[in-house]
């Protein structure tokens, strides 16, 4: 069962009926992974909704520590990165590898910019003592059972942190894809890898589309 030999000889691994069968199966597999990710974040969103409902004043106070403009900037970074990502896939399909690599690299840069903004946001909060649970030490507004400020920040760090880890994971995948294109493994004939990394990347964007308003905007 030599994948490389099969691809050279037949164009696709022989345990699939056809190239279309291979592509459809892999794409479906990726979609299943993506919806699993949605359920993962979904659970966290339900937790946020629940505690927001139970402690509206606490959440209202706490959310003022978040900078709306930085949140909006990060949103714009990810949205543009979604465009450059899909262009990367589109140009690969059209066999325009130079443009493809450029767009994938731009996606990588925009993801990096997102993480840089995140770094500034997190370091500010760490500096102020606005931390999860027992680590919370912001003296001007202590966290009490009646006003559990630390609860908001537990949710903030857990949800945006998990999302941030997914962004970094995506950056690694982007490097991998660019490498594959460079060595000729991903081509206009076999572009599944870049398409599926693209799907993953859009999901990361999708999750942020919901994270942004609930933490930064809604009062």
């Amino acid at each position: 069962m030599d994948v490389e030999a099969d691809i050279k000889k037949y164009g696709f691994p022989q345990w699939f009926k056809s190239k279309e069968h291979e592509f459809d199966s892999c794409k479906f597999g990726m979609w299943l992974f993506l919806v699993q990710e949605l359920m993962l974040f979904g659970g966290l969103f339900v937790a946020f909704a629940m505690y927001n409902y139970l402690y509206p004043e606490t959440f209202r106070e706490a959310h003022h520590h978040l900078d709306k403009n930085l949140g909006a900037l990060n949103t714009v970074f990810l949205l543009i990165s979604s465009l450059t990502m899909v262009l990367g896939v589109a140009y690969t399909m059209r066999n325009q590898m130079g443009k493809a690599m450029l767009n994938l690299f731009l996606t990588f840069l925009l993801a990096g910019a997102f993480m840089v903004v995140k770094y500034f946001e997190y370091s500010h909060k760490i500096h102020e003592g606005l931390l999860p649970g027992a680590l919370y030490s912001f003296a001007a507004n202590p966290s009490t059972p009646e006003n559990p400020q630390s609860l908001f920040f537990s949710l903030y760090f857990m949800m945006t942190g998990l999302h941030g880890i997914h962004v970094v994971g995506g950056m690694v995948c982007l490097l991998w894809i660019m490498y594959r294109i460079k060595i000729g493994k991903t081509t206009a004939e076999r572009f599944g890898a870049v398409e599926f990394v693209g799907l993953y990347w859009h999901l990361v964007d999708l999750i942020w589309i919901f994270l942004f308003p609930i933490f930064y905007l809604v009062v």
Binding site: R60, S82, V218
Partner: peptide, 25 residues
């Protein structure tokens, strides 16, 4: 109310999500 503000924000977010799902994905 917070519920109303949340509903508006989620409606807009859902519209954005639909664009990503239908066209980008």
């Amino acid at each position: 109310s917070m519920a109303a503000n949340l509903a508006v924000a989620m409606a807009i977010a859902s519209a954005k999500a639909s664009l990503v799902l239908f066209f980008f994905m």
